[in-house]
Simulated scan of single mutants.
Amino acid sequence: MVRSAKGTLDAPGKKVKQKSGLNKSILNSAWGRVDEFLAYKALRAGKLTIKVPPHFTSQQCSVCGFTHKDNRLKQSVFICQQCGFTENADFNAAINIAAKGIDMILSGDRKTKPKKGCSITKKVGVGYSKPVETPKLVETIVSRGRVKNTNTHRSVKRETPTKTLPNV
């Protein structure tokens, strides 16, 4: 998507400055975060997400499986050169991606990353560490400064364990 718009020596690109602005907005959109949120929301809803490699799905026929670059001569029209199947190119690619995803599930080819574990440790002595105590959540009453209204808001605030220092 951010490929250069300069063109060739015979046919130089036009509006290159507009393309550079588009490139900046594409790169600032944080596609990795979109993937993370999509996976999070799908997991929360009990759905499965799979990353399917989309290579040549817009040039492959969803009926006969024939793949060729001439199948998609226009942006929105797909015409199979072998069987004559005609469809919207994006819809045909979506069918191919769904079929690849189903094949990945059935063949067991889906790769799952192990969850990374993390714990905070505090060094005590040489070569010995023990887990740090996690702060306890304590409910406190917070007043918003209204004298006439006695409504109070409750909030959960992290409080660290207090340590008493010896008197010196």
Results as ranks from 00 to 15, higher is better:
residue 34 V to G: 01
residue 18 Q to D: 13
residue 160 T to E: 15
residue 146 R to L: 08
residue 149 N to R: 12
residue 162 T to Y: 14
residue 35 D to E: 07
residue 116 K to T: 13
residue 146 R to Q: 06
residue 151 N to A: 09
residue 130 K to T: 04
residue 72 R to G: 01
residue 138 V to P: 13
residue 85 F to T: 07
residue 40 Y to P: 00
residue 135 P to R: 11
residue 115 K to A: 02
residue 113 K to G: 01
residue 144 R to Y: 06
residue 114 P to M: 01
residue 145 G to H: 08
residue 112 T to K: 14
residue 114 P to V: 06
residue 53 P to C: 02
residue 119 S to W: 02
residue 135 P to G: 12
residue 96 N to H: 04
residue 31 W to L: 13
residue 164 T to M: 13
residue 161 P to K: 15
residue 117 G to D: 12
residue 120 I to F: 09
residue 55 H to A: 02
residue 62 S to N: 12
residue 157 K to E: 15
residue 145 G to M: 07
residue 139 E to N: 04
residue 158 R to Q: 15
residue 74 K to T: 10
residue 10 D to H: 05
residue 18 Q to M: 00
residue 159 E to F: 10
residue 97 I to L: 07
residue 151 N to Y: 03
residue 13 G to Q: 05
residue 142 V to A: 03
residue 85 F to L: 07
residue 38 L to E: 00
residue 105 I to H: 01
residue 130 K to R: 04
residue 110 R to N: 01
residue 45 A to W: 11
residue 118 C to P: 00
residue 3 R to G: 08
residue 66 F to C: 05
residue 2 V to T: 15
residue 78 F to V: 13
residue 136 K to T: 11
residue 20 S to C: 00
residue 63 V to G: 04
residue 118 C to Q: 11
residue 75 Q to L: 06
residue 8 T to M: 03
residue 139 E to K: 12
residue 130 K to Q: 00
residue 91 F to N: 12
residue 84 G to C: 05
residue 39 A to V: 12
residue 12 P to D: 02
residue 13 G to K: 00
residue 58 S to V: 11
residue 47 K to A: 09
residue 7 G to L: 02
residue 21 G to P: 03
residue 72 R to D: 00
residue 19 K to I: 00
residue 88 N to G: 11
residue 67 T to A: 12
residue 154 R to I: 07
residue 26 I to E: 04
residue 136 K to R: 13
residue 1 M to I: 06
residue 10 D to I: 05
residue 23 N to W: 00
residue 80 C to A: 08
residue 85 F to E: 04
residue 115 K to T: 07
residue 120 I to V: 12
residue 153 H to F: 11
residue 92 N to H: 06
residue 43 L to C: 12
residue 141 I to T: 12
residue 85 F to N: 04
residue 4 S to Y: 01
residue 126 V to I: 09
residue 111 K to L: 01
residue 137 L to N: 15
residue 140 T to E: 13
residue 78 F to K: 06
residue 142 V to K: 10
residue 108 G to K: 03
residue 79 I to A: 15
residue 23 N to A: 09
residue 68 H to T: 14
residue 26 I to L: 15
residue 44 R to G: 06
residue 93 A to K: 06
residue 148 K to M: 08
residue 68 H to Q: 13
residue 56 F to W: 14
residue 91 F to Y: 11
residue 93 A to V: 12
residue 21 G to F: 11
residue 52 V to G: 01
residue 91 F to V: 15
residue 32 G to L: 02
residue 22 L to Q: 00
